[in-house]
């Protein structure tokens, strides 16, 4: 008699509701329609969050000062991926940096275009390539390109 057996199973978690704060992400998204990056600044310690947050991690107080940060910034770190997030091989390696935009404390991840993987380096200056037609979605910030 077989001792154990593998059976296939699935989780049906494809749709669920998830309420989000208007303070951070939606403010960022509405700014993106105007090709602007809007973060939230802590009134106490001055930390600028992007996407914004309704509270400061460090001070643990409610914050709501919207502040525009630059759409130019510096590559803080990067990785070159050979597969997508589900592990499917990519045709071309994909460069994904984390960028610290001017006037912002958080690093933001995105895709970097217009430069060969071997030419990317930490400290290089990049800017946002905005979509022509912007709808107030994350897709407005298409990718980063060298400054």
């Amino acid at each position: 008699m077989e001792e154990t057996r593998i059976v296939n199973a699935t989780w049906d978690v494809s749709t669920f509701k998830y309420r989000i704060e208007g303070q951070g992400l939606t403010r960022m998204l509405s700014g993106m329609r105007d090709a602007k990056l809007i973060g939230i600044k802590c009134s106490k310690c001055g930390t600028v969050y992007l996407p914004g947050s309704f509270y400061c991690r460090k001070c643990h107080i409610e914050i709501d000062e919207a502040i525009e940060v630059g759409d130019h910034g510096e590559v803080m770190t990067y990785t070159v991926g050979y597969a997508d997030v589900r592990g499917n091989p990519l045709e071309e390696p994909r460069v994904s940096p984390m960028v610290k935009f001017d006037g912002c404390d958080a690093w933001v991840m995105g895709a970097l275009e217009g430069v060969k993987p071997e030419d990317v380096h930490v400290g290089m200056r990049v800017k946002v390539a905005w979509a022509e037609e912007r709808t107030g979605s994350l897709q407005d910030m298409q990718y980063f390109i060298p400054e």
Binding site: M76, R86, S96, M109
Partner: peptide, 24 residues
């Protein structure tokens, strides 16, 4: 609503970012 939508982040790509940051 953000990181998952971005489609760039998973455990391996995050570790790649961490490794590059450390080496640099």
């Amino acid at each position: 609503t953000y990181d998952r939508q971005l489609g760039l982040l998973n455990e391996l790509s995050a570790a790649g970012l961490q490794a590059r940051s450390f080496l640099n």
